[in-house]
Simulated scan of single mutants.
Amino acid sequence: MSRPDVRHGRGAPENRTPTRFNLPVREADGDWLDAREALDDGPPPLRTTVTVEKPKTIITRNTSPDIGFDRSINPYRGCEHGCIYCFARPTHAYHDLSPGLDFESKLFAKPDAAALLRTELGKSGYDVRPIALGTNTDPYQPIEARWRITRSVLEVLAETRHPLTITTNSDRVTRDIDILAPMAADGLASVAISVTSLTPDISRTLEPRAPSGRKRLAAVRALSAAGIPVTVAIAPVVPGITDHEVEQIVAAAAEAGASGTFFLPVRLPHEVAPLFRAWLDEHFPDRADKVMNIIRALRGGRDNDPNFFTRLQGFGPWAELMATRLRVAAAKHGLNREKKKLRTDLFVPPQGPQLRLL
Rank of each mutant, 00 (worst) to 15 (best):
T196Y: 00
R129I: 00
T60K: 02
L198Q: 10
S105A: 15
L342S: 01
F347T: 05
K215W: 04
A258V: 13
A233Q: 10
H283Y: 14
P130M: 13
H8M: 10
V191L: 13
R47E: 11
T174R: 09
R172L: 15
E282R: 15
A218S: 11
Q141M: 10
A288E: 02
G9Y: 06
A251Q: 14
P200Y: 01
L157R: 08
Y126M: 07
H333N: 09
I143L: 14
N62L: 15
I177Y: 00
S224T: 07
L116R: 00
F315H: 07
H81F: 15
V191P: 09
I131R: 00
R175G: 07
T205R: 11
P163Q: 11
S212P: 02
G11D: 02
L33F: 07
R343Y: 03
H244R: 13
A288V: 06
D345F: 08
R302P: 05
V52A: 12
W32N: 04
L280K: 05
V238D: 02
H244N: 12
D345R: 00
R311L: 04
V220H: 01
V272A: 04
Q354S: 06
L121Q: 03
E53M: 15
G301W: 07
G227D: 10
T196S: 11
N15M: 08
I84R: 02
P229K: 13
N336H: 06
S105E: 08
Y76W: 06
P239S: 04
F108W: 11
V250H: 15
G78T: 05
E155M: 03
A278Q: 11
P349K: 06
D40P: 02
